[in-house]
């Protein structure tokens, strides 16, 4: 314990915390609450039963009411404790409830039905994580289909992007050829054309290529990014030319040099770009919204968005689906957060 205290309170050089340190830690703790709180609340809520979700004010943890198996009744009865009257303190099973009155039975005497005021009954509850919200996603919705669409788009687009961008970066970093500056300027030029301002003609081109309402319509336009070319080029420039020359002496073809030498040596930069690409494609929204209009083509993001309109009140499914949608990204974050931070800081996050 003393160790914990000294860990928490120690600052470098000084023995005591200055008041500004207290303010700083206070701010950071508020930060934890504000940044993680909403996500924790979402996850906890997704494990609540529909009844519990309707409850106002809500409770922090998910609860489930206990049930009693009583002889003579086919299904288990909801368990309550009586708070007032003759039966005070006893556990009863509820058989019916209407208009503020409840009909209950005592387990010891299942044949006698007793009528009570409903507000004299206290439900017996325990903390329970309900998984029905998740299981019904697979039963009631085409969840696997959406998941597959998102995964297919993300994986394919990432692989294509890594290949094409690293080829271009290789050409721009290791060859002296006429027109190199022009190409570099072109790449910078594409930085200035975000997808959001060319939606209409992009739509025409994708339609003309027969990729409207096809997953490829999302994959192909996103497969070349100026950011990726720049990131990889900056890294490849640092690979010494002597390695290439040595390989050429050994009569290695240029393509072999590219994939046997340059690609493995650029692995750190490629890893960063891969993480970024996965994130971009998985979270992509506006362009898929335009290209994919049929439900069977929806990505998870589109499905989530359309369900919140259709099923305004179906929060149980929606919450579970939201959690499943953020899960892959959360996993990536947990394992690779160091790379992500450096990657995003070095590319400007586009």
């Amino acid at each position: 314990m003393a160790k914990v205290i000294s860990f928490l309170t120690a600052t470098r050089g000084k023995g005591r915390l200055h008041w500004t340190d207290w303010v700083s830690y206070g701010y950071l703790c508020l930060g934890i609450f504000l940044m993680f709180g909403p996500v924790v609340w979402l996850v906890l809520s997704s494990f609540k039963t529909p009844n519990e979700l309707d409850r106002f004010p809500p409770r922090f943890l998910p609860y489930a009411q206990e049930t009693l198996e009583i002889e003579g009744y086919d299904s288990p009865l909801l368990a309550f404790v009586v708070t007032e009257g003759e039966l005070a303190g006893q556990t009863v099973g509820q058989t019916r409830r209407a208009a503020g009155r409840a009909e209950v039975v005592v387990p010891a005497n299942p044949s006698e039905r007793i009528r009570l005021q409903a507000d004299t009954l206290d439900p017996i509850e325990h903390i329970a994580f309900a998984t029905e919200n998740y299981t019904q996603l697979f039963e009631r919705f085409n969840f696997l289909r959406f998941f597959w669409n998102s995964t297919f788009i993300t994986v394919t687009a990432t692989i294509l992007m890594l290949l094409f961008n690293s080829m271009a970066a290789f050409a721009l970093s290791k060859y002296e050829f006429r027109g190199r500056t022009t190409v570099l300027l072109m790449v910078i030029g594409t930085l200035m054309v975000p997808q959001t301002v060319v939606l209409v003609p992009l739509f025409l081109i994708v339609t003309e290529l027969g990729m409207f309402n096809s997953l490829w319509g999302v994959i192909i336009p996103g497969a070349a990014t100026p950011t990726g070319v720049f990131l990889l080029r900056q890294y490849m420039i640092t690979i010494p030319d002597e390695i290439l020359d040595a390989a050429r002496m050994d009569k290695a073809s240029e393509w072999k040099i590219f994939w046997r030498i340059i690609l493995p040596l650029s692995a750190p930069a490629i890893a960063v770009l891969a993480i970024l690409a996965i994130m971009w494609r998985w979270n992509d929204f506006l362009w898929p919204l335009i290209v994919l209009t049929r439900t069977e083509n929806f990505t998870l993001q589109l499905a989530l968005n359309s369900f919140q309109g259709e099923l305004q009140t179906d929060w149980p499914s929606l919450l579970a689906m939201t959690v499943l949608t953020l899960l892959p990204i959360a996993a990536v974050f947990a394992f690779l957060q160091k790379y992500i931070a450096t990657g995003i800081a070095s590319t400007g996050g586009k």
């Binding site: 094409f164 030029g189 594409t190 060319v198 209409v200 081109i205």
Partner: peptide
Amino acid sequence: LAWAFLLPNLILFGLFAFLPVILN
């Protein structure tokens, strides 16, 4: 040969970045 390495990227840039700007 550099152009061969650049080709896929340039085609994509051309089709999905430059052409749209003009068509717009």
